[in-house]
Simulated scan of single mutants.
Amino acid sequence: MLDSHLIANALAPTGKLRASINLGNPLLAGQHAHDGSLFGVSIDLSMELASRLGLEVSFLAFDAAAKSVNAVKAEEADIGFFAIDPARSEGIAFTAPYVLIEGSYLVRDASPLSNMEEVDRTGHRVVVGAGSAYDLFLTRHLQAARIERSPTSPTVVDTFLHIGADVAAGVKQQLEADASRLPGLRLLAGSFMSIQQALGAPAGRASEVHQYLAGFIEEVKANGLVRDALAKHGIVGAAVAPAQSAG
């Protein structure tokens, strides 16, 4: 068994567990307007991890995934919660995913697009949150459509409407919420990607740290903590990721 005291010292050299929180994904983190306090699944997991290691936790909140990722890469934070992507692997070591989220497309009601396969056509403009998992994925996979970038994921639909683009891409639940508050919008059926949300730490931390974090994520999936956190925060549409095979 790994010594939690040694892990705490190796993971959090400042004596506090510094958790980088991405407010750009409202399924996993949010901020109360009245007092600025943070809430969400990633907050709950940070506090559980800190408690197990006998550490205080301090949060660094960012409005976009790319900023949150960079804080961990620069070792300004000890952990972060992001979608796994090859473009983020340099400088960050990820656990297996703990939550799976769908990425979807949104269009205007009047759009001629009727399915996802029609999106990647010459002349189409697709709006994504800069540096988000969708940006990284679609940058690799779209061959003909042009990508336009919004400053953050929550502003994607507003940017999409403002610039007159053809498609908005992002978290299905965020797009559904935007479609309900703004008239004349609809989602295309299905999802273009399954986003694997994982716990990440600076790659330079000791191997025992990464081993401990991997075990932590498997345990909180198995014991229901992730499931209960999703329910507690009213998150619909995100699923607890399956257990990581030991083999």
Rank of each mutant, 00 (worst) to 15 (best):
G131Q: 13
G131D: 13
S132C: 09
S132I: 03
A133D: 11
L136Q: 14
L136K: 13
L136Y: 08
L136F: 02
F137R: 14
F137Y: 15
T139W: 00
R140E: 14
R140G: 11
R140N: 13
H141F: 02
H141C: 08
H141L: 07
A145G: 12
A145P: 13
R146T: 14
R146M: 10
R146L: 09
I147L: 15
E148L: 12
E148Y: 09
R149I: 02
R149V: 00
S150L: 04
S150F: 04
P151Q: 08
P151D: 05
T152F: 01
T152H: 09
S153E: 15
S153D: 15
S153R: 01
P154R: 01
P154Y: 08
T155E: 14
T155K: 00
V156L: 04
V156T: 15
V156E: 05
V157C: 04
V157Y: 11
T159K: 01
F160D: 01
L161V: 08
H162Y: 07
H162I: 00
H162N: 11
I163S: 10
G164F: 04
A165V: 04
A165Y: 01
D166K: 00
V167K: 07
V167D: 09
G170P: 09
G170E: 01
G170R: 11
K172V: 03
K172S: 12
Q174C: 00
L175G: 09
L175T: 10
L175F: 13
A177E: 15
D178P: 01
A179S: 09
A179Y: 06
S180Y: 01
S180K: 10
R181H: 13
L182A: 08
L182M: 12
G184N: 05
G184Y: 07
L185E: 03
R186K: 15
R186E: 05
R186Q: 08
R186P: 12
L187V: 06
L187A: 11
L187R: 14
L187W: 12
L188D: 14
A189I: 02
G190R: 03
S191G: 08
M193D: 06
S194V: 14
I195N: 07
I195C: 05
I195V: 13
I195P: 01
Q196L: 07
Q197M: 14
Q197L: 12
A198C: 06
G200E: 12
A201T: 13
P202S: 08
A203T: 00
A203L: 12
A206G: 02
A206E: 15
A206K: 14
S207A: 14
S207I: 05
E208R: 07
E208L: 11
H210G: 08
H210Q: 10
H210D: 03
H210F: 05
Q211F: 05
Q211C: 08
Y212R: 04
Y212E: 01
A214N: 12
G215W: 00
G215R: 04
G215T: 03
F216K: 03
I217Q: 02
I217D: 05
I217T: 11
I217K: 02
A222T: 12
N223V: 09
N223T: 09
G224N: 09
V226D: 04
R227G: 09
R227C: 03
A229I: 03
A229L: 13
A229W: 00
L230I: 06
A231G: 08
K232V: 07
H233K: 08
H233G: 06
H233Y: 15
G234T: 04
I235A: 10
G237M: 11
A238M: 06
A238V: 10
V240P: 06
